[in-house]
C-alpha cells in the first residue's frame, strides 16, 4: 500500500477510461475496480460451495452414497474444460479486435464466445440428464459381530461387485437396499454436486446473457476502441467463470 500512496498523485493525470469521467485518485476506471472487488467476493462464494462438496464427500461414502468416480466421466468434463478454455481465447481475441477497432472481428469473436458458452451449458445439461437417469445401490453389510458397513455401488457395477463383496465378507449378512437414482436429493454427493455445478452453470448463463448484450451493442455500432471497457468487463467476468471451472475440474473430477 505504501508505494501506491506515493504514486497516487502522479497517477492522477492518467484519468479514467474514455471521456466524460473525471480523473480518479488511483488513475483507474471505477467500474473496473468495482468488478474486481466483486470477483474476489465471488471467489469466496465458490470456495464455500466447493468446500461444502469436499467436507461432505467422506460422509457420502461412509453412508453408502454413490462413489463420484463411478459417475463422473473424465472424457466429457475434459471436453467441457476445453470448451471453456477455448471460449476464454475467443474472449481475449474479441477484446483485441475491439481495441484495434476491428468491427467484424469483434462481432465474430464475441459470437464465438457466446456459442462456446452455450455449448458448455448444453454439455452440462447432457451430463445432468445422464446422471439423473443412472442409479446406485446402497449395500448394507452386517458382520456377525454386529459391525455395519455401507457401500455405495453403481448400478452398472452391481453384477460384478456383489460376488466380490460376498467373497470379502463371507460370514456377513449382505443386504441390497434397492436402486436409487443419482439425483439432487438421494445422496449427499448428488446434493453437493448438483448445487455446486448448478451455480457455476448459472454464472455461465449470466455471462452468456451479458456477452449477448455486448454483441447487440456491437451490432448497433455502439462499441469501439473508445469504450473497449464494455468488452473488457464482460471478459473479466467470463474468465473468472472459466477459472472456477479450472478449480472444479481438478478438485471434483480429477482427484
Amino acid at each position: 500500500m505504501a508505494q501506491a500512496v506515493a504514486h497516487d498523485q502522479k497517477e492522477h493525470a492518467a484519468g479514467g477510461h474514455g471521456h466524460g469521467h473525471p480523473p480518479t485518485s488511483l488513475g483507474l476506471n471505477s467500474r473496473k475496480v468495482g468488478l474486481w472487488t466483486f470477483i474476489s467476493s465471488e471467489a469466496i462464494f465458490f470456495t464455500a460451495l466447493i468446500s461444502t462438496y469436499l467436507v461432505l464427500k467422506p460422509r457420502n461414502i461412509a453412508l453408502g452414497g454413490p462413489e463420484p468416480q463411478d459417475f463422473l466421466g473424465i472424457t466429457l468434463t475434459a471436453i467441457l474444460a476445453f470448451i471453456l478454455l477455448m471460449s476464454s481465447l475467443t474472449m481475449v481475441l474479441a477484446l483485441h479486435a475491439v481495441e484495434t477497432d476491428n468491427v467484424r472481428g469483434t462481432r465474430l469473436w464475441l459470437g464465438a464466445t457466446i456459442l462456446l458458452g452455450l455449448m458448455f451449458l448444453g454439455g452440462q445439461v447432457y451430463e445432468f440428464n445422464k446422471l439423473w437417469s443412472e442409479g446406485f445401490h446402497t449395500i448394507v453389510i452386517t458382520e456377525p459381530d454386529g459391525k455395519v458397513e455401507r457401500i455405495g455401488v453403481a448400478e452398472h457395477h452391481l453384477e460384478e461387485e456383489l460376488p466380490h463383496l460376498q467373497a470379502e465378507h463371507p460370514n456377513a449378512q449382505i443386504q441390497d437396499t434397492g436402486r436409487k437414482p443419482v439425483t439432487w436429493t438421494t445422496s449427499l454427493f448428488g446434493s453437493t454436486f448438483f448445487t455446486m455445478t448448478g451455480f457455476h452453470g448459472t454464472h455461465v448463463a449470466i455471462g452468456v446473457v451479458w456477452l449477448s448484450i455486448v454483441l447487440v451493442m456491437s451490432l448497433r455500432g455502439a462499441i469501439s476502441s473508445r469504450n473497449s471497457l464494455t468488452v473488457e468487463m464482460a471478459g473479466l467476468y467470463w474468465h473468472f467463470v472459466d477459472l472456477v471451472w479450472v478449480a472444479i475440474f481438478t478438485l471434483i473430477y480429477l482427484i
Binding site: M1, S25, L28
Partner: peptide, 12 residues
C-alpha cells in the same frame, strides 16, 4: 474510498 479521493487526500 480508493478512487474518488480529492487531490492531496492520500491514504495516510
Amino acid at each position: 474510498i480508493l478512487n474518488l479521493r480529492a487531490p492531496g487526500m492520500k491514504f495516510n
